[in-house]
């Protein structure tokens, strides 16, 4: 699994990149009460704001970690936003992306590097 400085995790599954937010990010956000997901089939560019997460405290965005196409979104989060707090790196994935070249994932942080990053 790889990690971004925006506190997203990325893992490859069937040649797609599955994206979610880290437990650290979920804890910082607090109780998540609303998730807005992009539409399946949307082409996105890196750093574009594509999801909205609202906690009881505040709203924040998820940025597209890479250029690519959103091929699947996790509708479970729309019905049960609290999954983000309960299982951030499991059931609470946000979307799956198709990207041209999976090797670009190598640029992101490893778990050890991410742990050092959040201190």
């Amino acid at each position: 699994m790889k990690f971004t400085e925006e506190h997203e995790w990325l893992r490859v599954e069937d040649d797609l990149v599955v994206v979610g937010i880290t437990e650290h990010a979920a804890t910082q956000l607090g109780d998540v009460v609303f998730v807005e997901l992009p539409e399946e089939g949307t082409t996105v560019t890196k750093d574009e704001e594509i999801c909205v997460i609202e906690s009881v405290k505040a709203a924040s965005d998820i940025l597209a970690p890479l250029d690519g196409e959103i091929v699947e979104v996790n509708g479970l989060l729309v019905d049960e936003p609290s999954k983000v707090n309960e299982d951030a790196i499991g059931d609470a994935w946000f979307f799956k992306m198709k990207i041209d070249d999976l090797s670009v994932l190598d640029e992101f942080m490893s778990e050890a590097e991410y742990k050092a990053f959040i201190g």
Partner: peptide, 12 residues
């Protein structure tokens, strides 16, 4: 204190 470990939802 904006919240304690329980968090805003549980405190509410």
């Amino acid at each position: 204190p904006v919240q304690y470990p329980a968090g805003v939802m549980k405190e509410h």
